[in-house]
Design a protein around this nucleic acid. Structure first.
Lengths: 158, 158
DNA sequence: TGTTATTCGTTATAGTATAACATATCAACT
DNA sequence: AGTTGATATGTTATACTATAACGAATAACA
């Protein structure tokens, strides 16, 4: 499984496809991808990086929107709640989901140098699976986050 | 692998053993378990729950210490940095390590009802392992956190 | 005992998130 | 089209989490 986010790709396509997918999925499920939610998703998609809520707020303001923190947090709640984005717990920040449209426990690879975040996911992670089975703990939400160096930054460090 | 934290146990023993182990390991490695660091560790050990830095601060104050936030954060930096405690990213809070003395990627099981946190760990987690191998990402630090219901709270919910 | 490194005390401030309530918009039905 | 109930947004204020910066105290060791 190759994680999504570090490799070169046509990013305009990447954004466009994600927005279209989100649109389709919202229509399908009776969700409302309002202008603000859509714009916040666009901002998240614009980079494969975690972006803080207040950075998003600044971008909205520079768009000319008279925005306050709750506006951003509400949009982020919607996006994370419906799987269009993930919260990066390690950074208190957010990143667009790279594989929307399926419930999954995200596995985020966070590069500490370039700040890019790649995503893969675990259908049945063994560590969590074992712990759950043996303990009777019922997992409702799981995240895995690894901090380290992405391939590009390893090369540059050499 | 049964996670540590949910099952019944002699908690006084549990705390005492952990403190003794920390003491020994500090002596061994030339680390200084100063009174404040020791006290913060005791506070963390007192419950198998995540505790916020400011809650710890309040407890220190009620001890009669004239404490400010940096005092607590420094102690927590020491404890997490040397593996005596973990940061619970999901909660912006901290918990004593249940298996100190070995480098490990903690797997935390967080009960959303009783707030207890159990810990197990992953020597070689498959999801992270796969992602790492295939992508060339070098993991320096990894956390796994699952939120859900512990066995006790499941029973009570029934 | 002097020197250096580490830890602690203190003030101030930065960064992240939510409560609460008023207003507006949407969706669906009459 | 008008009413109604649900959902989303605007706005103010505030709570919670974390760190920068700098000086004083203490420990470790030559």
């Amino acid at each position: 499984m190759v994680p999504i986010g570090f490799e070169r790709h046509d990013h305009a396509d990447c954004v466009e496809a994600a927005i279209a997918a989100a649109d389709a999925r919202c229509t399908e499920n009776g969700l409302r991808l309002t202008p603000i939610r859509r714009r916040v998703l666009e901002i998240l998609l614009s980079r494969h990086c975690a972006i803080g809520a207040y950075d998003i707020l600044d971008i909205l303001k520079s768009d000319g929107v008279k925005a306050q923190p709750p506006l951003v947090y509400r949009a982020l709640d919607f996006l994370t709640g419906h799987g269009f984005a993930h919260r990066v717990e390690r950074l208190n920040a957010f990143v667009a989901c790279a594989v929307p449209g399926q419930r999954h426990a995200p596995v985020l690879l966070i590069c500490r140098t370039c700040a890019r975040v790649a995503e893969t996911h675990a259908e049945d992670d063994t560590a969590l699976g074992r712990a759950t089975r043996d303990s009777g703990f019922v997992v409702e939400r799981a995240v895995m986050e690894a901090e380290g160096l992405c391939p590009t930054c390893q090369e540059n460090a050499t």
